[in-house]
Design a protein around this nucleic acid. Structure first.
Lengths: 200, 200
DNA sequence: TATGGATGCAAGTAATCACTTGCACTCATC
DNA sequence: GATGAGTGCAAGTGATTACTTGCATCCATA
């Protein structure tokens, strides 16, 4: 909306995201990125100065893309908690799988580029996290969640469950179940773990 | 026990593991590894032929080290389930934090070196996973865990919770709680999620 | 029609990479 | 004391890297 959408620049950024995801931040060469973008290598340097500048542009683009995607969806969580959890988990897991390669390289370089991984977490997952927490609090207000549990931590635990599971399931060695089964068990256990104790 | 412990070879392997963890598989140069091992660079090639051979040696060494470490500990899980879960979680989380850097680079390169990440998962985490599942099944036999839940998937979900949480907590941007709080909530929610329903 | 900005192309830079070669040294074992 | 395996040292290989320079070309706008 704000920018006039420089076609070349955007094409380079999206190509760079693909190549970074495929080859890693170190393994991605400026040549390969330029080729993927169908652009001369020198154009890349004229637009972004150097590889680091390109990476920074890719990161802010990734955050913005995530923002415009995660809008919509999700009403109030006043009804069936498990059903709402399940829908949330399915959507989140699907998008994690879709971005698997990029997420992996970002995790791998997390210690070597702390600013970027921090930005990704703070700017991209923060809004999703906060709405998730708000939904859990609404559900608690409706009596669907027991007291005495920090819902911020619980929300992080739930997303970590999906995230870690995705890393395992996409690693190529399955242990005899489908991703859908995994998500279902996560939702089941988490929902039961949050449910109010029905008077001992 | 089996090998006569070639000092030079082992020193190179351990140095390589540190440099791989610090700089990534791509970023780690044979020069840096040789320097870290206080060994001439050419010795590295004479011992392992090439960088890939060195990486393979590092992986089998990592698996063996993990094996000899994860022995001992843990009796039967017939008593307090939550207490046993807590001890398991504390130990696992601590070792995940200790190996954070190496795990991150392995996750990052998981798609580019599938054999190695597969080996790491199959050979290193498998035994821990199987004993964890056996413990959960023993607890179920003792009436501490409800039926209708695949304990293999549940075990994976629990470790994924700790694993994903470790990645988040060590990423440098905390959300106002300590790792111990996180682990405690994980154990709390998971234990409650597995608990038998007390007659509605 | 003229100007200026964005792009392509060809060529080249200095640095770094994984990996090799040849030679000298040590040291345990025969 | 001779042998041979393991190591260090110096030097060098060709390939690849990020990044630069100079010049031609397009094309929208003034």
């Amino acid at each position: 909306m704000s920018e006039p959408a420089n076609t070349t620049r955007e094409r380079i950024i999206e190509a760079a995201m693909r190549v970074f995801a495929r080859d890693g931040l170190q393994g991605a060469t400026t040549r390969a990125i330029a080729q993927e973008a169908e652009v001369n290598e020198v154009t890349l340097f004229r637009q972004f100065q150097n590889k680091e500048g390109l990476l920074a542009a890719v990161m802010t683009h990734a955050v913005q893309a995530n923002h415009s995607e995660s809008m919509g969806d999700e009403a109030e969580w006043t009804g069936n908690l498990k059903k709402n959890l399940r829908r949330f988990a399915d959507n989140l897991y699907a998008s994690l799988v879709r971005d698997e390669a990029f997420l992996r390289t970002m995790i791998g370089e997390g210690k070597r580029h702390p600013e970027h991984s921090k930005k990704l977490i703070m700017d991209a997952v923060k809004p999703v996290r906060e709405r998730f927490i708000a939904n859990l609090e609404a559900a608690r207000k409706a009596g669907l969640v027991r007291k005495g549990i920090d819902l911020g931590i619980a929300a992080d635990a739930f997303t970590a469950m999906l995230f870690g599971g995705m890393l395992r399931n996409t690693a190529g060695c399955s242990w005899g179940y489908e991703p859908a089964d995994y998500v279902a068990i996560c939702v089941d256990v988490f929902a039961a773990g949050l449910a109010p104790v029905p008077r001992a």
